[in-house]
Write a protein that binds this DNA or RNA. Structure first.
Length: 295
DNA sequence: ACATAGACCTGTTGGC
DNA sequence: TGCCAACAGGTCTATG
């Protein structure tokens, strides 16, 4: 599920309910996700008011009154959902509700503007995790210290990428997945951005840089492609590859706009190309691209 | 320094 | 229908 656009969508979905609400109690249904929860996690956050939600790379941050911040990463299969109203006896019956309660690992019980509500974290594979940090220490936190630029703002430009790519033999696919260069891109959006820029995923990153260390034209196109695909995906509410991912239960629809991802054997969508989307494996992960128009 | 493989988990899908 | 291998949006660690 979650690359940057999906986490951004989750944040926007949760914010109206969570911001300003009282986090009455955090209920942890197991001691760990990918990592153990901090020892004092539930006690530290319970009874605190939620000030705001934000996102950095693929991390969701929940700022609490008093200066603590809950840091959440959704891994591969994490999702949040909101349930309004107080829990009822029926909530225990999985069959009645048809929900995947088996993997509900964290429940934030809220006293929100519209009354009681629960924000529930579900994660079948448990590659996600939560941590707690002080707001003033966030920038130096191990999760954030080495992160590169966000692809949503003006900081990601051709000069920045040229400096990062200069002299690199690393394939573009791997270079773009490196969170230390661009924070928040994942497998889907890297494939899509490279297709939009007509660049082969196996091409060495350094070939987009000229002898003086400046950006060559394909790098300008790549920057535009990255920014555009991320903006388009956020506007579409992200991609829903499995069932619903948005907090209100609705679906993102960017998966319908994929040009190459998961389209092996299908026709390339570049006008006049006539190529066929191929799948290769790079660094153990599927890469989808058109060998005909991506050079 | 860097590239790849394996690890962490569970669920779904596709081929036989 | 059943079984099993392959694969899945991410990242960290070990190994060469």
């Amino acid at each position: 599920m979650p690359e940057l656009p999906e986490v951004e969508t989750v944040k926007r979905g949760l914010a109206p309910t969570m911001e300003g609400a009282l986090l009455v109690r955090a209920e942890l249904r197991r001691p760990d996700l990918r990592f153990p929860f901090p020892d004092d996690f539930a006690a530290a956050v319970s009874g605190r008011r939620i000030l705001s939600l934000s996102r950095r790379a693929k991390y969701l941050m929940i700022d609490l009154e008093g200066g603590d911040v809950i840091i959440a990463h959704l891994g591969m299969s994490g999702s949040f959902r909101i349930e309004a109203g107080a829990p009822t006896a029926r909530d225990g019956f999985h069959a009645l509700r048809g929900k995947d309660e088996k993997h509900d690992h964290v429940v934030f019980h809220l006293d929100a503007h519209a009354g009681p509500a629960r924000v529930i974290y579900n994660d079948p594979r448990r590659f996600g995790f939560m941590d707690l940090a002080r707001r003033e220490a966030i920038a130096e936190h191990a999760f954030f210290r080495e992160l590169g630029e966000e692809p949503t703002g003006n900081a990601l430009d051709a000069a920045y990428l040229a400096a990062r790519f200069d002299g690199k033999a690393q394939p573009l696919k791997a270079a773009l997945l490196d969170q230390r260069t661009i924070a928040g891109l994942g497998n889907i959006y890297v494939c899509e951005a490279l297709w939009r820029a007509r660049l082969a995923p196996v091409r060495p990153a350094g070939t987009l840089v000229d002898k003086r260390g400046g950006a060559r034209k394909p790098l300008l196109l790549l920057v535009e492609a990255i920014r555009a695909v991320i903006a388009d995906a956020i506007a579409a509410g992200g991609s829903s590859l499995k069932d619903h991912i948005q907090a209100d239960g609705s679906l993102g629809y960017f998966q319908h706009a994929f040009s190459v991802y998961d389209r092996e054997g299908e026709a390339c969508r570049t006008p006049g190309c006539g190529g066929t989307v191929a799948r290769i494996v790079q660094a153990g992960r599927s890469t989808f691209y058109c060998p005909r128009c991506q050079k």
